[in-house]
């Protein structure tokens, strides 16, 4: 069994184990989206117009929640030292951690996203595209979020620092993702936004492992 495969299994078991990070993220997502009708008023037409955008923006916020645990726990208990001393490069370790974050937290959130959009009044035909954009956007959230998590290692109140570093990086996927959904809702071509979203996710997955590894090495030394 390859080392990276067993690392992936460990990461998933840690993410799904006691503490239930993914469940909290989903509950937070649902709660956040419920605040909107309370703030913006309950007129169905107004809510329906806002629904796709709100579903995507709150998805970004919910994706922030478990980022703090991505490297911090391993950093504090010494596991990160041992991960660095394994034979796979640290960049691969970081990529696997983000991939596991995407599977454990990003995927459940993506499944919840159309439910929330429809509950707010979005037409159900949008559901497949909402899931697809939320999954793709989730790749961007997990990998750029990982960069923030690695940079914030060892900082006091790291969770807040992560949010400050990462929220600007979350802007492009929110723009492209919500844009694609709104385009489909308005009967316009939705592929450009979707393709940009995919490109952002792939670029983040390709580049951020190097930044994460540098951040981890810096925090350890």
């Amino acid at each position: 069994m390859s080392a990276l495969f067993i690392l992936m299994r460990r990461e998933l078991s840690l993410a799904w184990g006691r503490g239930g990070g993914a469940l909290y993220a989903c509950a937070f997502y649902a709660g956040l989206a419920t605040l909107l009708p309370l703030a913006a008023g309950a007129e169905p037409q107004r809510l329906a117009a806002l629904a796709p955008g709100v579903a995507f923006a709150t998805l970004a916020l919910a994706s922030l929640l478990s980022l703090e645990r991505l490297f911090e726990r391993d950093f504090e208990d010494g596991a990160l030292d041992l991960l660095v001393l394994g034979s796979p490069p640290l960049e691969a370790v970081c990529a696997i951690k983000c991939l596991a974050q995407w599977i454990a937290t990003g995927a459940p959130l993506a499944i919840l996203a159309p439910v929330i959009a429809i509950a707010l009044g979005a037409p159900p035909v949008l559901a497949p595209l909402i899931v697809a954009t939320a999954l793709l956007g989730g790749i961007g959230f997990a990998f750029t979020g990982g960069v923030g998590a690695a940079l914030a290692l060892g900082a006091r109140r790291g969770g807040l620092l992560i949010a400050v570093i990462v929220l600007p990086l979350f802007a492009p996927p929110v723009i492209f993702g919500a844009g694609a959904i709104q385009a489909l809702a308005a009967g316009l071509p939705w592929t450009p936004g979707f393709v940009f979203l995919a490109a952002y996710g792939l670029a983040a997955a390709a580049l951020s492992p190097f930044a994460m590894a540098a951040g981890c090495r810096n925090a350890l030394s």
Partner: peptide
């Protein structure tokens, strides 16, 4: 990466 073991105060073991 393949030749040494480090055993420190922080053992990297997850309590749960």
């Amino acid at each position: 990466s393949g030749g040494l073991h480090l055993l420190g105060h922080h053992d990297g073991l997850k309590s749960d």
